[in-house]
Amino acid sequence: MEKANLKKQKNILGEKLNLDVLRGLSSFIGLIVLCVLLAIISPVFLTVTNILNILVQVAVISVIAAGATFVILTGGIDLSVGSILGLCGVVSAGVLKATGSPVLAILTGILLGALLGLINGTVISIGKVPAFVTTLGMMSVARGLAFIYTHGRPISGFPDSFRFIGSGYLGNIPFPVIEAIIIFVIAAYILKKTPFGRYVYAIGSNEIATRLSGIKTNKHKIMVYVISGLLSGFAAIMFIGRINSGHPLGGDGYELDAIAAVVIGGTSLSGGKGTVMGTLIGALIMGVIRNGLNLLNVDAFWQGVVLGVVIVAAVLIDQRSKKTTNL
């Protein structure tokens, strides 16, 4: 009797869930509307070359943003991702030049990113230094090290085998796009299906209650920064492969793009709420707008203004829709 009741009531909640899905869809609908508009305004927009071009450009940022989603879901922030990309890029390029081994170079880049993330995470969760401060410091340190390592000069010219990750093709599809998709599928799986994913949301919602549930919150908090660093390292390999050069300034300002993608995707900066698929849509929205502004020959300085307005507007709309559905 009781059971039947619970099951029946589930339907009511099913409807409510659909509402949530709809809200999640709102950024997706925004993306579609944007594409339709641009397709009407610019004949070039809907061409295959242009679409692939957008996707390739979005790939690097979206990989970083996937990592940033984990961090932000726990209620943290990682400002060092752009600098970590820069440092991992030049070190990986240096290792490649020194050893000639693409595998070694790639592994070094990724592991260095993970190591820097580990340092971030440890200082934040064991040392109790606020994430903002810790990663602001790391942002400066990693960028400085990138300049020291290269004496300020880019390291350029890589073999195709190494560049494949950043600029290869699988059939007609650019390989970075496939990598980004795989990373998002894995990230979504981790967040949705594994205990670690559940703990990430729990920590972001109520860290004390989570710790008192016998969960090693510190360990998991360190882990999200490791993921963020590791993905920044991977993004570095994509990035230097694409432009065929490791520059100490590589990834400059990417932290803001990544955070913007996460936020446009509906993830709350206070933690506990959001999805990695939202982040993907957020990254695409940013990419499409940038591309559209380029196609329309909008001055680069104005592009910054437009993107800034879009970021704030997206969050504003999200807040409004929440208000009307909750009470």
Binding site: T194, P195, R198, Y201, A202, S205, N206, I208, A209, T210, L212, S213, G214, I215, G272, K273
Partner: peptide
């Protein structure tokens, strides 16, 4: 503050300390 993750569902709260058993 300490017992519940208020933004989690009833199910997610009940299973939070027990998740490892269902993996």
């Amino acid at each position: 503050q300490q017992g519940l993750v208020l933004k989690f569902s009833v199910k997610e709260n009940i299973t939070l300390p027990n998740l490892k058993r269902f993996v």
